[in-house]
Amino acid sequence: MIPSFLKHISLICQFELKRLFATRKGLLYMITFAFIWYLILLYPIRFSSDFLSQQENTPEGNSFFQFIGFGSLLNWRIPELGVYWNFSLTIFPLLTVITSADQTCSDRNRGTLRFLCVRVSRGSLFFGRFSGIMLTQAILILASLLTTIALIAFRDTTLLPVAFNSASAIFLSLVIALLPFTAMMAALSATVQSARQATTWAILIWIFLAWIISIFSAYLPALNSLKLLIPGYQISNLYQLAEWQILQLAYIPLLQTIILLSIGRWIIHRQSL
């Protein structure tokens, strides 16, 4: 019996998880990721949270953070999670661009996609790879959040219920924020020859698309709304939000994801393998 579309997606998704946890390249990535987060937890999060705890109830402290543009950190009930949120908004999109750049391009060049495409539809393959990458990102976000919560528990175990509540908001918001980045890399990967080309194109799109839209919107301000199409457009605003408010702008990445996935699916259906 031929497996359904969703069963194929699930099988491809599982295989992508295996790529992260059971291949040399995946394990190397995991070790690098763990080392980066170990340093972030050990220094910025731990020390910043100590500093924030001391300053948050003083007018001098408040005005200092407002002045350097990190006033929103004081809106988090647990400072560690506020610092985590600010770091993760920068680090995870970058890691996503790097790790999801090779969703299909190497396999297409090598001919491996041909072995797959006689068994599954291109749509299943495209969405399966996308889902697999998103699942691995979600696992990594969860792991880093749990270690942050462990750090919080080490300081004060009574904060755990609040920590889990805030961490849930961060988890959801981060996963949603990463969707358009992964979708954009899926579409680029379906187009170009290598992961390096996909990453280069992603950087060019960010720089030039924003630049071109800015130039044209100077003449026609309505065009400024086109910036909504650039993945990560809402991230600068997310830095200013705290707790469950961070999901207020979730509609932007969700909309971007739908558009980018539609483009990617259209490309892969027309691509010669």
């Binding site: 031929i2 001919g111 041909r114 072995f115 495409c117 539809s121």
Partner: peptide, 18 residues
Amino acid sequence: GASALSGRVSALPQDARL
């Protein structure tokens, strides 16, 4: 390339590698 052909049609593509 239709899903209905999965398992019914198989291929050895030229120069494809695992």
